[in-house]
C-alpha cells in the first residue's frame, strides 16, 4: 500500500493556489471596503465609520491570518514534504511493526508519528529496532498493522509504502 503518490504533489499545489487566490480576493475586498468607508467620512458620522472599519478589518484580518497560516502554509509544506520523499532513493526493510505514542511537530514541516520496525538477527538472535516516521495525515494505513509482520519501503526515514499484515 503506497502512502505517497506523485499525483498528490499536483493536488497540494492546486489547493495552495486556489486558497491563495481566495485569500487575495478577501484581502482586496477588505481593502476596497475600507477605502470606500474612509471616503464616506465626509457624508456620514466619522466616529461610526471608524467603528465600522474596526468591525470589518479585525475579524476579516483574523480570517486571512487563519487561511494563510493554517491552510495555505499547510498545503505548501505537504507539497514540499511529498516532493522531498518521492525524490529520495527508497529502501526496503522487514520486521514487526510497533507504533510509538510519540508525535513530533517538525518546525515549518509536517507532524509525524514514530514507529519502530523490530527484526531478529538470524545469527545472534538479538532484536534490532529501527525507528521510522509516518506523516500523521497518512498514519491510519500504518497503525492498523501495529504488532504485525510487515515489509516497508522507506525514504528519508519516512515510511512511503507498507505491505504485509501477518501476525508476528
Amino acid at each position: 500500500m503506497e502512502l505517497y503518490k506523485k499525483e498528490e504533489i499536483g493536488i497540494f499545489a492546486r489547493r495552495e493556489k486556489v486558497w491563495t487566490i481566495l485569500v487575495s480576493l478577501l484581502m482586496a475586498a477588505l481593502l476596497i471596503s475600507i477605502i470606500t468607508i474612509c471616503c464616506l467620512t465626509d457624508q456620514y458620522n466619522g466616529q461610526q465609520m471608524e467603528y465600522t472599519v474596526y468591525a470589518i478589518l479585525v475579524p476579516g484580518g483574523w480570517v486571512c491570518i487563519y487561511i494563510w497560516l493554517d491552510v495555505i502554509l499547510m498545503y505548501h509544506r505537504e507539497k514540499k514534504h511529498t516532493q522531498l520523499i518521492l525524490e529520495s532513493t527508497p529502501h526496503t526493510a522487514e520486521g514487526t511493526l510497533k507504533v510509538q505514542r510519540m508525535l513530533f511537530s517538525i518546525p515549518q514541516s509536517v507532524t509525524v508519528r514514530k514507529v519502530s520496525l523490530e527484526t531478529v538477527e538470524p545469527h545472534t538472535g538479538e532484536v534490532l529496532s529501527q525507528l521510522y516516521s509516518v506523516d500523521v495525515r497518512r498514519e491510519k494505513e500504518v497503525t492498523v498493522l501495529n504488532g504485525k509482520s510487515v515489509r516497508i519501503t522507506e525514504a528519508h526515514g519516512y515510511i512511503i509504502a507498507i505491505e504485509g499484515g501477518e501476525e508476528a
Binding site: 475600507i34 474596526y54 478589518l57 479585525v58 484580518g61 483574523w62
Partner: peptide, 10 residues
C-alpha cells in the same frame, strides 16, 4: 493583529 489594525486605523 487586533491591536495594530485598530491603532493604525484610529
Amino acid at each position: 493583529w487586533a491591536l495594530l489594525s485598530t491603532i493604525f486605523m484610529g
